[in-house]
Amino acid sequence: MTITQWLFAFSILLLVLLSLFLIAAFMVYAERRVLALLQDRLGPNRAGPFGLLQPVADLLKLITKEHFIPPFADRSIYTIAPIIVPFTALLSFAVVPVDDDWWLADINIALLFVLALSSLRVYGIMLGGWASNSKYPLFGGLRSAAQMISYELPMGLALMGVVMLSGSFSLVDIVAAQSLPFIFLQPIGFFIFLICGIAETNRLPFDLPEAENELAAGYSTEYGGIQFALFFLGEYIGVLLIAALATVLFLGGWHGPWLPGVCWFAIKMLILILLFFWLRTSMPRLRYDQLMSFGWKLLLPAALINLMITAVIGLFWIKG
């Protein structure tokens, strides 16, 4: 590759990264507004028109705060942990196709790549909780580890149904295979994926690792400033990623009439993100044993049965 090609590639990457950060930042704002709307109050509306500059203000505040490492913490891990969370989520975006030929990479194990990265995400939270070296963060970290291991399994199994239907791990191929969105062929798979996705990103009703009224703020209790912001951002990029993946895998990606593909992609994602906001306002938090038994005793068997039915139907219907 020549220098110009390198520069081009890097600038594209930079652009994508920046835009993702921006979108995530504005998601925070949007969520606060939507929450306020649903709870019949105003929400942030002072900074800029309609409070649109609120994320900028938040960012400024967080950056200018003191960078503080508690003396009892494990310094190196304490510093690294918050970076892992947004980093893994951002990496996953490399394989998400946004439009007909808009993607950064098309590798033939894209789906496995995404799953692998999402399984690495837990390290950020676990280590953050452990490195803080105090009680509540440790509990938060442990909870998140157990939760993520438990929900990764049904998630992966639910995705295997999609893989069976499309015959490929590549997200581009999966979107291309969806003349009929897979949500109609795999409704159970879709719901399992969505639920597991919410659990993986530690959102309500599965936000036990950072449950405010039990564990102070869970794994992020000791964090402040830009490091807290990284955790926070990581969560929102995770939500974005789950929405994007659900769109790509189940809702037909950029497929849609009249409008260009990107718009369809954005619309579908937006709907899903709104759904996440809505869930947050209306669902109570689960108890921990409920969470575990829900994952192992309901989601996992459901995912297995879904997979088996898909396999049987696929064998007799599609092939024969």
């Binding site: 194990i109 496995l112 790549f113 799953l115 692998a116 990265l117 399984s119 690495l120 837990v122 390290y123 676990m126 280590l127 452990w130 440790l138 970290g141 442990l142 580890a145 157990a146 993520m148 291991i149 990764e152 992966g156």
Partner: peptide
């Protein structure tokens, strides 16, 4: 395939268990 499985199973599951136990 093995690269992905290595990350998913070894790093993502087995080592998390390990860390979990240590914690």
């Amino acid at each position: 395939l093995l690269a992905a499985l290595q990350v998913m199973i070894y790093a993502g599951a087995i080592m998390v268990l390990f860390l979990f136990l240590i914690m």
